[in-house]
Amino acid sequence: MAEVVVDTPVPPRSTVGDESRDWRKALTGVGLLAPAIVIAIIFSIIPLIYLINVSLTRESTFFFNNPQYTFDNYRLIWNRYLPHVWTTIRLATLASLFCLIFGYPFAYILVRKVQYRDLVRILMTFPLFGPLYLTYGIRFVFGVNGPLAPLFDFIGVDSRTLLFAYPEQMTIFGMAVFTFPFMVMNVVAALTNVDPTLEEAARTLGSRPWQVFTRVLFPLSWPGVLAGFLICFGWNLGVFIVPMLLGNIEQQRVLSLALYQKAMSQFDYGLGSAMGVVLMLLAFTVTWLSLRFSRGALAT
């Protein structure tokens, strides 16, 4: 008897539920992202477009009656304010390096050695109260008749002119103190994820301390170093009160200070906005370059 194979029809699988689930998934994703997108549009994208728009106008006001669109503001920055751009980059870079040089060992000790690290972390965040307070504090400490004046006089440094004799150093120091916590916190986060046994293994295999640092510790903590450096650099690009109060002509020649003067004192919102766009482009460029050269280290 021939075997009869009955091809039992399989009822078509309903896709109604799947589609609904897919939609729900998609909607959930969009729904979760929506607040962030809305906030980004309102507080970031729209102001950015507005800033760029104003930067392309000459002698514009908030009234925008018959704005004249031009690239003159950017031309002026190129012709007149390029030294300001370089000074801005120089000070921000040096201050960020200062943070790295002193912040890395500090972070290492904090992670590996310090018993009350939470307390130290809390104390370390004090500079974040603001560059204004910090700068006045530094000026008081290092200034004429400040608490360190006897010490400086004792070692032969004229405390009356200390702030004026070393304006570059004082400015970089002031900028670095403010951003120091950003560097330390990022490096601490990175070092916390580095297994201490890797260092021990390297030492056991004969590596010297500097080799442990350069071949094990630093490469593994690189994402944190980079993140810390970028944040420090970004902050230091825009800070103007520190160079204003601690610097002299050479340090006061920063874009943020020129921006403040042009926009807030002289009401040239077009040029001020153009300077703002340049500062932002600087920050974006550095971030992009760093990500590129670190091969996505931040993503790891």
Binding site: T61, F62, F63, F267
Partner: peptide, 16 residues
């Protein structure tokens, strides 16, 4: 110490 900021605020408010 920078009264010009008041004018910026005034212009911004008037413009809006």
């Amino acid at each position: 110490q920078q009264p010009s900021t008041y004018l910026t605020e005034l212009y911004a408010a008037a413009g809006a």
